[in-house]
Design a protein around this nucleic acid. Structure first.
Lengths: 207, 207
DNA sequence: ATACAATTGTGCGTTAGCGCACATTAATAC
DNA sequence: GTATTAATGTGCGCTAACGCACAATTGTAT
């Protein structure tokens, strides 16, 4: 059990590799990605200090078919997967919390599924910014359009256009490789309901 | 604990209602749906005899924010949610299996998320037919384009066009409110990798 | 100060899928 | 058999987003 620093892009686990550690983010944001046969990566969920990366260890699977990395640098508490497994088999407070978190993460994935099907890239972009804003200190964080477009599973050029529109609306400000949230209220209005829904469910289950 | 018959459309649980039962489908297919603020429903996952409906009971949540229903009629074993919760707290075989199933369902949701983002309706339609085919007896089952379109989160008219194309290709045959799988191999080729991926993960974890 | 590389801005033709509207066909009830 | 209703077939204009391509800008290293 150890606090470690994690920079943008640092890997937490790779597909089908033995899951050694479970991570409890303190600051920054982690992401779980799916990898398709052609190599395309797409974001499944993001995790901040409300959650944990490495649930497969809890579920009793040795590996995950996905990939996890840090997408906004910060710190996390790293725990041996074996220790987590052992502790949770006692059915104590940790097991209870991890079960409830599993349920919350289910909701997150479920909503993401729907969101990807029915909502515009602009809405989804706003959701993403809101989740990230919640999990970092301050209103500014490092983010390129290129990176964001991969997370959203969209074109970089498309994200640039949207980012420009949001900036003209006074909602965000784009610098080179950085974004600043300027008008949080407007950002929430421009996002779809998915942000609210997921937040509410986390509060209900773990708040 | 009781075996019950379930017809197409029968509800297993509703959003935010006390989860009384957990269902283990024997035959037929159940589905978990998300409901948006405007009432739109969208399919999150389907469950057959490989799985269970009512994981929130296992996770320790009294309710779910989603809805579950039977979409292809059949039978299921119905168990009291309280009994499942009690049994799983003993950390025996049931708990182990439910944990692994949770992991498998995670994969299913994750892949669905990606699929909704990146794959065509035709591909997704084929995936849906494959999963259903796996879970029913024989090659024929009751299904309207209207129903399928809601599950896929697409237009009914769009599904009709696709179903027509699949029929002309000799892959399926459309009757009124029924479909017959005619060429399973071709159907698998027309589907995206998501079908294979999810199947493989279920086999790996629970097979 | 200058070169270089990463990042962002912009345009344009193309496509999947939507919304809407209406025609047609097959099962069901009378 | 006939009427009715559920289900399917089809067309058309429209929009979001794509693929591709290239220009412009800004930070960084030398």
């Amino acid at each position: 059990m150890k606090v470690i620093d994690l920079a943008q892009g640092d890997s937490l686990y790779q597909p089908n590799e033995q899951l050694k550690y479970v991570y409890f983010p303190e600051r920054g944001v982690a992401a779980i990605l799916n990898i398709l046969e052609d190599g395309t990566e797409s974001e499944i969920a993001t995790v901040g200090n409300e959650g944990v990366v490495g649930l497969p260890a809890f579920f009793g699977a040795a590996t995950s078919s996905r990939r996890a990395l840090y997408q906004i640098s910060g710190t996390a508490v790293r725990v041996n997967a074996a220790a987590v497994r052992q502790e949770t088999r006692k059915n104590g407070a940790l097991a209870k919390t991890l079960r409830l978190y599993s349920q919350a993460l289910f909701t997150q994935l479920a909503q993401q599924t729907t969101c990807n099907r029915l909502h515009t890239i602009k809405q989804r972009c706003c959701c993403w910014l809101l989740f990230t804003h919640d999990r970092v200190d301050g209103d500014e964080f490092g983010l390129t359009h290129e990176f964001l477009s991969e997370m959203l599973g969209a074109r970089r050029a498309g994200v640039t256009v949207i980012a420009g529109a949001l900036q003209r609306a006074g909602i965000i400000q784009n610098q080179r490789g950085r974004v600043t949230i300027r008008n949080r209220a407007k950002l929430e209005k421009t996002a779809c309901e998915c942000y609210r829904m997921i937040r509410a469910e986390f509060n209900r289950l773990l708040g």
